[in-house]
Each structure stands twice: as C-alpha cells, then as structure tokens.
Amino acid sequence: MQGIASILINMHIIPKLKERCVMAKKILVMDDDPTTVDYLVDLFNDNGYETCFAYNAAEGFEALKNEKPDLITLDLDMPKVAGPLFYIRYTKIQEFKDIPVIVISGLHVPHRSIKKVVAALEKPIDREELLAIVRNTIGEGSSD
C-alpha cells in the first residue's frame, strides 16, 4: 500500500486530490454599487474562487454567519453603517475577528481603525494587483 501511495505522490496525484477535496476559498464582496459587486464576483469566480456578496452591513453580517468567507473585500463608503463601523463590529466577534480584509474604496486613505487590513485599494482598481493580493492572502483559486 505504501508503495502505491508513494507512486501516487510522485505522480502528483495525491496533492491534486487533496486540492480537490479542500473546498475552494470563498470571498465576501461588500459594496453598495451593484455593478462593482457584479464585476468583482465575476472576476473572482473566473479565477477559481467562490464568492458571496452583500450590499450593506446587515447583509454583510448575514453572509459572515451563513457563508463563512475566507476573505472580505470591503467598500468604506456604504450607506447606513459605514465600512469602518462594519469592520469594528465584526472584529469584536471572536469567530470572525481573524478574517482578512481588503479595503476597496473611493476614499484616498483607508480608515486607520481598520488595523489588520491586508491592503487598501483605491477605485478604480488594478485587476491584476487585486488578484495578486488575494493569491498572497488565501492562496490560488481552484483550477476549475
């Protein structure tokens, strides 16, 4: 049995199987502009990530609970509860506090209260730059 396993490893079959077994990483896209959400969702899907999205903070909390995302892209300028406040609130919750966040916003400077931000991108965003940051943070998307 061991022999077969080693053969499989040598043929790079097991790592691939492993990769397949691990669920694709999921990104929560938060923005109040539907076009932007649509765009980012397609972009991430095309690159092998699963996605969920939210147009406001209330939907954002729902998505955190139900979808358990691995990464959040957050617009800072959403109505009702602004981005920074959403961040402050969800990082107070033990279960979610370590989810990395990428700020994508029309504002020049990310809010300093968002301490553990992975990166802050200003709109309009550089697509390749965004994908590179996502890859560095949660790894490659799955190949299919």
């Binding site: 076009t35 932007t36 709109k123």
Partner: peptide, 21 residues
Amino acid sequence: ISHGIKGIMTGLDGGMYWLDT
C-alpha cells in the same frame, strides 16, 4: 463628483472586463 467619477470608472473597468473575457 470625484467620488461619483471613481464609481463610474470602476463600472467601466467592469464593463471592459466582461467585454474582454
């Protein structure tokens, strides 16, 4: 205005992405 224009530019990026892909 600058905020609005940034939004529009992001939208245009999205449009071009769909067109390209």
